[in-house]
């Protein structure tokens, strides 16, 4: 994934710059379509892309396996969630974060994926709320998106991740956690 260059270019400044060798293409005569690109200082500005803010949601905070307390559970870039819950370090939830993303994959057991709960505890008050309950339904890495509770914004927080309902027949249930993202 590349980084988008010069995101905020003021549209009114976009002029078709003179090229030093030949005049660049302009939209067809009489066309009411906006021009596709502009040249400014020798750089190509893609209209409707470079001049529009990225709305996909920048990652404001990323918690990696190294940001969990259970370092001994890290394997191959993931932290492994089984019977024991996992706790992140205490961190500050970004003020403007709207969504949380759990990036994880799982293995099936008896034809079913494991069900997990993500809880967030206010480090100051100790109050804890469940922010997500559901399955990790993918053998390959997948993003599970859920909203950030309003009252967590800007708070010192610790996340806890646990598998719900351990398999009654003793089968292995495992979730491979890559990251938590805040967007």
């Amino acid at each position: 994934m590349m980084v988008r260059p010069l995101a905020a270019v003021i549209l009114s400044l976009m002029v078709m710059a003179a090229c030093h060798r030949r005049k660049p293409d302009a939209p067809q005569s009489g066309s009411t379509e906006p021009p596709v690109f502009a040249l400014r200082d020798g750089k190509v500005i893609l209209q409707g892309w470079d001049d529009v803010a990225n709305t996909s949601g920048a990652i404001l905070l990323r918690l990696n396996p190294q940001d969990f307390e259970q370092q001994e559970e890290i394997r191959g870039g993931n932290i492994i969630l089984q019977k024991r819950p996992l706790n992140t370090r205490v961190f500050v939830v970004p003020e403007s974060a709207k969504t949380m993303v759990l990036v994880a994959r799982a293995e099936m057991n008896e034809g079913a994926f494991p069900r997990v709960r993500v809880s967030a505890a206010d480090a100051d008050s100790g109050d804890s709320i469940a922010v997500y309950e559901g399955f990790v339904r993918s053998l390959s890495m997948a993003s599970i998106v859920f909203p950030v509770p309003f009252k967590l914004a800007g708070k010192q927080t610790q996340l806890t991740l646990e598998i719900l309902e351990p398999n009654p027949t003793g089968g292995r249930r495992v979730v491979f956690v890559r990251a938590f993202l805040f967007r």
Binding site: G76, R105, L139, S140, M141, S143, R178
Partner: peptide, 11 residues
């Protein structure tokens, strides 16, 4: 089928 890229965040 994302078989060899289980751990890729964007397979």
């Amino acid at each position: 089928r994302e078989s060899q890229n289980l751990d890729d965040e964007s397979p």
